[in-house]
């Protein structure tokens, strides 16, 4: 059973996209922990730790990814959560993708990504087998 945390860091005003992803992952047979809006990096990583998820899916629309993502990844390393697959979605300009990958994010999904691609990616890349 694949467990995923869908998290929305920062001050984004709505979470429609995140909920669409959460439902798609559930319908693909995954267990999705959803924590709602306005999460701090500390809250997110603490939830990853306690829920022991295989995947962290971040959704950021606000443009704050250059500060939020490095902080989240730093905390992930501090807690030795290195086997968690981290995905980033929302509105991430093409020019920023490489920098995000450098922080340890596995893959950036742009707006309009087919949820099926995300599901396939997760199934292929989850690092922890049962």
């Amino acid at each position: 059973m694949i467990r995923v945390l869908v998290a929305k860091p920062g001050l984004d005003g709505h979470d429609r996209g995140a909920k669409v992803i959460a439902r798609a992952l559930r319908d693909a047979g995954m267990e999705v922990v959803y924590t709602g809006l306005h999460q701090t990096p500390e809250q997110i990583v603490d939830a990853v730790l306690q829920e022991d998820v295989d995947v962290l899916a971040l959704s950021i629309l606000s443009g704050a990814h250059p500060t939020l993502v490095p902080r989240i990844m730093e905390l992930m390393r501090e807690h030795e959560l290195n086997d968690v697959l981290v995905l980033l979605g929302g509105i991430i300009p093409d020019d920023d993708v490489e920098a995000m990958i450098q922080t340890g994010v596995s893959r950036v999904f742009g707006p309009g990504t087919d949820t099926k691609d995300i599901i396939d990616y997760i199934r292929e890349h989850v690092r922890r087998d049962d």
Partner: peptide, 30 residues
């Protein structure tokens, strides 16, 4: 609940527990 169709689930109880779970004296699991 798990979906009887896909076997997946959305675990949303943590949303309402944000104030209390960031504490070394608390552990929460969905």
């Amino acid at each position: 609940p798990s979906s009887p169709f896909s076997g997946g689930a959305i675990l949303g109880d943590r949303i309402r527990m944000q104030e209390s779970v960031m504490d070394d004296g608390v552990f929460m699991r969905s």
